[in-house]
């Protein structure tokens, strides 16, 4: 029997994976994907808790998060594209013009 705790542990693992990916990887696209992983950890938690609490609210919240994530990525990719045009690279370490 799969219980709430199993879902919560899985989502914590997903969030941790995303977190590590964001911190360790320097390719901007992979960093984007890591953020998506973290957002999906939140979605999994919402849906699992919605089932636990027996209500549709959590599932609706998950849908909202998906919509927000899509909006965020649209803007993020546009900025990344603008950066790529100027620098010809998607490596985050190459973005280091701003210094004291």
């Amino acid at each position: 029997m799969v219980e709430l705790n199993h879902y919560l542990i899985l989502s914590a693992l997903l969030f941790g994976l995303g977190l590590i990916g964001f911190v360790v990887r320097r390719n901007s696209l992979i960093m984007f994907m890591s953020i998506e992983l973290m957002l999906n950890a939140a979605n999994l938690t919402f849906v699992a808790c919605a089932r636990h609490h027996v209500g549709a609210e959590g599932s609706v919240l998950a849908l909202l998060v998906i919509a927000v994530a899509a909006a965020e990525v649209a803007v993020g990719l546009a900025i990344l594209l603008a950066l790529f045009r100027l620098k010809k690279t998607v490596n985050a370490d190459e973005a280091r013009e701003l210094r004291a």
């Binding site: 709430l4 953020i35 957002l39 939140a42 938690t45 609210e57 919240l61």
Partner: peptide, 17 residues
């Protein structure tokens, strides 16, 4: 900002739980 937002929403999900 997106990194921070995912912390915020994950926190909200847990509080909802």
């Amino acid at each position: 900002g997106a990194f921070a937002s995912s912390f915020l929403i994950y926190g909200i999900a847990l509080v909802y739980g």
